[in-house]
Design a protein around this nucleic acid. Structure first.
Length: 317
DNA sequence: CGGATTTGACCAGCGC
DNA sequence: GCGCTGGTCAAATCCG
C-alpha cells in the first residue's frame, strides 16, 4: 500500500523566495509553533550567514550538507511510512485471526450472536470492505448447521434525531427485508440484505441507540464477496447521508471511538466531500497529529528541520 | 410495470 | 412443554 495515497506527509518546504529577506511566512511560523517548535527567526539565520557570503565554497558546502540532510529526512519519512504500513497490516491480520477464533464453531444461534461482536467501529468508519466470503446464503438460513459464523462488525453513525429513516449509506446496496421492534429498544430494528450481488451473504441490522436516539447502530454480518459499489450507491440511494466505509480494522483491539457527524454532509450535495480512499478525515487528522508529535519530540529532527528549511531558503535564493 | 419497502405471520432458539 | 423473543418470509403496497 502506498501510504502517500492517503496521508500527505509533504512538508511543503517550497517557501516563496521573495519573502526570504522579509520574514518567516506566517503559516510556516504558526505551523512550527503549533508543533511545539521554538519560534526561530530565519532573518537571524540569514544574517548570521552573511558574514561568510564571500566564502562561497563554505556556502556550497553548507548547501550540500543541508541537501543531504533533506534527502535523509525524506528517506526517514519513507521508512516510517513503511514501518507503519507493516504494523498496520500485522494488526489487520491479527484482528482477522482473532475474529475467526472467536467466531468459530458455536452451536446455538443466539448465544453466538452475543459473543460475536468482535468488531466494533464507532462511525464514521464502518467496515464494509471485506473481500472474502465465508458463508453462502444457504448457510445463513440454516444457522444450526456446523458452519463458519459470519464476521460481525458494529458501526455507530450519528444522524439527526428527527430523522426516522434507518438508512446508513456505506457504499453498498441494501434491500430491506424486515423490521422489528425489539424488547430492549423501543425503536424498531431494520433488517437489510446486500442486494448488489445476489450471492452476497452479508446482512445488516440497523437500530437507533437506546442511549442516544441520534445514533444509528448498524450491525454487519458476513463479508461481501464483491467489490464495493459506492458509486452506484450514491446514485441510487435517496438518503442525503453519505458514509464511505473505510477498511480500518474495526479494532476490537483498540476500541477507538470515532464518530462521524452526518448532519454536515446532509446539506451538501458533494458526495466526494465525505469520500476518502481509506480513512475518514478525522482518522487522517489523528494519524497526522500522532506522526507530528512523534517527530517533533525528537530533538534531532527539530534541528534537521530547521537546517532543512533554512537550506531550502538559501537554495531558492 | 418492475423493483423496493412495509408489515403481519411464521419459525426457531432459549430460558424457565 | 410453553411462552418470549429475534429473525425471516412473503403478500400487499408504494413509488419512480
Amino acid at each position: 500500500m502506498d501510504c502517500s495515497s492517503w496521508i500527505n506527509t509533504s512538508l511543503d518546504l517550497n517557501i516563496n523566495p521573495l519573502r526570504v529577506h522579509e520574514e518567516v511566512p506566517k503559516e510556516v511560523e504558526s505551523k512550527l509553533f503549533s508543533l511545539g517548535m521554538p519560534k526561530f527567526n530565519v532573518e537571524e539565520c540569514w544574517e548570521s550567514k552573511r558574514p561568510v557570503k564571500e566564502e562561497s565554497s563554505d556556502l556550497e558546502e553548507e548547501l550540500k550538507r543541508v541537501t543531504a540532510e533533506n534527502k535523509k529526512l525524506a528517506e526517514m519519512l519513507s521508512v516510517v511510512c513503511e514501518n507503519y504500513n507493516t504494523l498496520r497490516s500485522h494488526l489487520m491480520e491479527y484482528t482477522r485471526k482473532n475474529g475467526e477464533k472467536e467466531t468459530s464453531p458455536t452451536s446455538k444461534k443466539r448465544k453466538s450472536e452475543s459473543s460475536n461482536n468482535n468488531s466494533i467501529c464507532v462511525m464514521g468508519t464502518n467496515n464494509g470492505n471485506s473481500e472474502s466470503s465465508s458463508t453462502d446464503e444457504e448457510s445463513c438460513k440454516k444457522p444450526r448447521e456446523e458452519t463458519m459464523k459470519p464476521k460481525v462488525s458494529r458501526v455507530y453513525v450519528r444522524t439527526e434525531a428527527s430523522d426516522t429513516t434507518l438508512i446508513v449509506k456505506d457504499g453498498y446496496q441494501w434491500r430491506k427485508y424486515g423490521q422489528k421492534v425489539t424488547r430492549d429498544n423501543p425503536c424498531p430494528r431494520a433488517y437489510f440484505k446486500c442486494s448488489f450481488a445476489p450471492s452476497c451473504p452479508v446482512k445488516k441490522k440497523v437500530q437507533r441507540s437506546v442511549d442516544d436516539q441520534s445514533v444509528l447502530v448498524a450491525t454487519y454480518e458476513g463479508e461481501h464477496n464483491h467489490p464495493q459499489a459506492s458509486s452506484q450507491m450514491e446514485a441510487t440511494s435517496g438518503s442525503g447521508r453519505s458514509v464511505t466505509i473505510a477498511s480500518v480494522p474495526c479494532a476490537a483491539a483498540t476500541q477507538t471511538l470515532v464518530t462521524l457527524d452526518l448532519k454536515k454532509s446532509k446539506g451538501s450535495n458533494d458526495s466526494k466531500s465525505t469520500k476518502t480512499k481509506v480513512d475518514t478525515p478525522k482518522m487522517q487528522q489523528v494519524l497526522v497529529e500522532q506522526m507530528a508529535t512523534s517527530l517533533t519530540t525528537d530533538p534531532n529532527f527539530r534541528a534537521a528541520l530547521v537546517a532543512a528549511i533554512s537550506g531550502r531558503l538559501l537554495h531558492n535564493n
